[in-house]
Structures are given as C-alpha cells and as structure tokens.
Design a protein around this nucleic acid. Structure first.
Length: 416
RNA sequence: GUGGAUGUAGCUCAGCUGGUAGAGCUCCGGACUGUGGAUCCGGCGGUCGUGGGUUCAAAUCCCAUCAUCCACCCCA
C-alpha cells in the first residue's frame, strides 16, 4: 500500500522546517493585523466555477469534484480566495470595519501530474484583504510576502509585478493583442494558436523560443492601461520603492485565475525545478460582486508551503529538532518504580523526559539517551536504590553526581 | 492528458554478455558483568514493483501493467 498519487506524509523529521515556516508566517500575519480564517475543505462546485472562472484550466480539468449522497456537486478546494470571499459575504463582514484582513493555512487539491514541488494535495499560506482599493494595501501584501521569504532565508527570490487592468481597459487591450496574434499566427506553436483563441493573454506563458521572439513586439497590457489603472499601478510601484522592495515590471506575467484586476504579482525562485513560482497574488475588485456580495475591492496572495520548504532545503537550511531534557537509565527492574515516578513528575513540571521501553542493556540505553540528545541521563541501579539516590550524568561534559531521589526533580528542573 | 527516465533490505545503491542476491547507513548485540557520541566484530532484515512469456535456469531477456521521479499543458 502507498498513499494516493501526488500526496505525501509529513513525518516527524520533516516538522522542524515546516514549523519554522509556519511560525514565521503566523508572526508576520499577526503583526500586520490579519486574523486567521479556516474554510471548509470542500465547497459548492459553483463557487469555483463562478469565482475562478470556467475558462481557467483549474476549473476545466483540475478539480476534484464529486456528488454527495444528497445529490450536491461539491469540490475539494483548488484555491483559497473564493472560499474566503464566500465566507466574507455569508457572515456579513461588509458590516465590519473595512478592510477585513484574513489569513489562512489550508490544504488545496488539484488533479495534476505530480512533479518537483507540485502535488495533488498541497498546503498554501495566504492572506486576503477585502473592502479597500487602496494601492498601499497591494503593497502591504507584497511586502508581507517578501518579509516572510527574507526572514526565513529563502534564496534567490525575485518579484515580478504587473497589472491586469480593469473592465475599462482590458477588453480593448485583448482586442489589440488578438489582432496582433492573428497577424502572427503562422509562426506560433500549436499551443499558442489554441491560446490565441481561448485566452490570448496566456500566449505570454509560452516557453517556445519562436513564440517568445514573436511576442517581443506584441502589445503589453501594462502599456495599455486606462488612466485610473495606470494611476493605481504607479502608486503601488511608488510604495514598493518607498519601502525598498525590488521588483521587475513584467508585462508577460499572467496568472491562472480569471478574477484578477489591476495589480498582479508573483515571486519566483530558481531552486524549485521547473515550477519557479513560490507565491503570488493580486487585486480582485470584482470577485465579491461576482460571487453575490455587494461590490467590494479586495486583494490577496497565496504561497506554497511545499515550495518554500523545497527552496529552504536547497539552501541547506535545516533547523535542529528539539532534544529531550532528561533520559532515565535503569539497570534492573527494582529501579523502574523510582525512575517512572521521577519521569512523570518531571513531565508535569514541563521537562521533556524519556525512558527505555525496548529492554535495552545499560549501554543501549545510554546510546538511546544520546540519540534523543538528552541533556542529562539519570542512572538508577542497585547501588542507587540501596543509597536512595540517583546518578545524574551531564551528557555534554560527561560529569556525574549522586542526587537524593527526593531532591531529583527539583535538581533537574533547576538545571534544564 | 502527452513525453522521457527509473523501480533490488527501513534508507542510499551494486549486481558485467541469464546460473535462483550483496555493500554502506540505520537498528540490536559483543569486544568493554552498571554508562553514550570513536574503532573493530557479529546478528536482524529482501516473494529483486506486479502479472505473464522465452529458457534446463530470469533481479538479469521480451510483453503487459502499476508506481515513482523529471518535463510539457497549467499552477503554489
């Protein structure tokens, strides 16, 4: 037996790195005033069809959709934003002081072929700020991400920034791009011809050199923004400059969801194999309305836990797992009651303590104490029982001294 | 969904042109009758992914299948 394709187990040895990432993320979300939200693992399929958009690949071919016994069509969530927006609407959060700032750590599900840094079930850390169109909010989200990567030491991270325009300027631009593509269609790869028809912006994702060459001269959305979008974009850039966060304006940046408007951004890291994206997001000023709420501008981001972990591993970052404070070594059966009593008393006092359950000899028990990286080994044998004490060995210096059994817990609590 | 690579002990892998399996690490033990991290020695541990086929004989050759990894589409 093995786990389903594209899933993985998080083993104890994997925890120190993961916990480091989660603790940093939590700290950054909290200091920025974001409150945690948890949404269901599955939602009505219609939520994603309306939110993410039926033209997106995620909705077209990557959703885990099933029918429950009540005949409802449900879907394991493939992304985090639509569920958060649904919760915002459902709980009347538009009546709270705006913007409402939320963060989450959730499992996401997408039916894709697994690959380096890509799973069918993965974890995303994300934040959404709903109810404000202020460009400084876009900058806040972008800065939170860079703070996270910086504080963790994620190597070689680069920020790409663009704007998707809005209902005002995007349609006109798409027409302009389509005209250009129609003109150049003969030189494009089959994939791009398909893209030109379905979702012209996607041609900028193509890795084919001939396509890239043709697209060098294609019109870019960032160069065709309406006045309001241009102003917003300039303001976001101004804030990033003010805060000293480097970025590269990249008119070829296209994100996978249909709901983005104005600002979009993506952090890339070279250490992840072919999947360079480590996190991304943007503004989605129409989504709340599209899902059925009152119009409310909003922005957010998501970042992949597995990809952060992969990048950190590539940089050799490996936090030490916590060791035990005390390990008991008993040399005969008579010593067990005293050792067990002391061990449980220590645990109640908050000290990490362990004992052998594998019937090892004295030497094996010492090895075990060493393996769990115990600070102290407490040895109890015939001599100690007779004298009513225990031998406490400092595992680093190797020094040992006898301590009366009744004073043992206090002695260790003081020293650990 | 498409393409490529790989599947031998818990882990990392060796096993040439077919003769029914080996190393290192880990684990347990011994050298050191009650004391760890070094060294040496020993032991535990495998239906060689699975199912067929060829052959006197298959981990090795052939076919199928499953799984893993990498890449594409797309995405965190």
């Amino acid at each position: 037996m093995q786990g389903p394709k594209g899933t993985y187990d998080v083993l104890p040895a994997d925890q120190p790195l993961r916990q480091t990432v989660l603790a940093e993320a939590r700290r950054i979300f909290i200091t920025a005033g974001y409150g945690r939200i948890a949404t269901p693992t599955f939602e009505d399929t219609a939520l994603f069809e309306r939110g993410v958009g039926t033209s997106s690949d995620i909705v077209r071919k990557e959703m885990y959709t099933f029918t429950d016994k009540g005949g409802r069509s449900l879907t394991l969530k493939p992304e985090g934003t639509a569920p958060v927006v649904r919760a915002y609407i459902q709980h009347g959060m538009h009546k709270l002081p705006q913007p409402v700032k939320l963060w989450y750590l959730e499992r996401m599900f997408r039916f894709e072929r697994p690959q380096a840094g890509r799973y069918r079930e993965h974890y995303q850390l994300g934040a959404e700020a709903i109810g404000s169109g202020d460009p400084a909010l876009d900058a806040e989200l972008i800065v939170m991400m860079s703070d996270l990567y910086d504080s963790l030491g994620v190597p070689d991270v680069e920020l790409r920034l663009s704007s998707m325009g809005d209902r005002q300027c995007r349609p006109a631009y798409i027409e302009k791009l389509s005209a250009y593509l129609k003109h150049a269609i003969g030189g494009l790869c089959p994939d791009c011809r398909e893209r030109a028809r379905l979702n012209p912006l996607r041609v900028f994702d193509c890795k084919n050199e001939r396509c890239i060459a043709i697209l060098v001269d294609a019109p870019r959305l960032v160069d065709n923004l309406c006045e309001a979008c241009q102003e917003h974009f300039d303001a976001v850039r101004g804030f990033l400059d003010l805060l000293g966060r480097p970025y590269r304006v990249d008119g070829t940046l296209v994100r996978g969801f249909d709901y983005y408007t104005r600002t979009t951004f993506e952090y890339e890291c070279d250490r992840l194999g072919a999947q360079k994206g480590i996190g991304g997001g943007g503004r989605y000023d129409n989504l709340v309305e599209e899902i059925g709420g009152q119009q409310a501008p909003a922005a957010g981001f998501g970042t992949g836990l597995e990809r952060i972990v992969l990048a950190l591993k590539s940089a050799g970052i490996a936090p030490e797992p916590p060791g035990e404070d005390v390990f008991f070594i008993i040399l005969n059966d008579e010593a067990r009651p005293a050792a067990l009593t002391a061990m449980h008393a220590l645990r109640r006092a908050g000290i990490t303590a362990g004992i052998d359950y594998a019937g090892r000899r004295a030497k094996g028990q010492m090895k075990q104490a060493n393996r769990v990286r115990a600070q102290f080994a407490v040895i109890i044998g015939e001599e100690e029982i007779a004298a009513g004490n225990a031998t406490v060995k400092d595992m680093i210096s190797g020094e040992q001294e006898k301590i009366g059994l009744e004073a043992l817990v206090e002695y260790l609590v003081d020293r650990v």
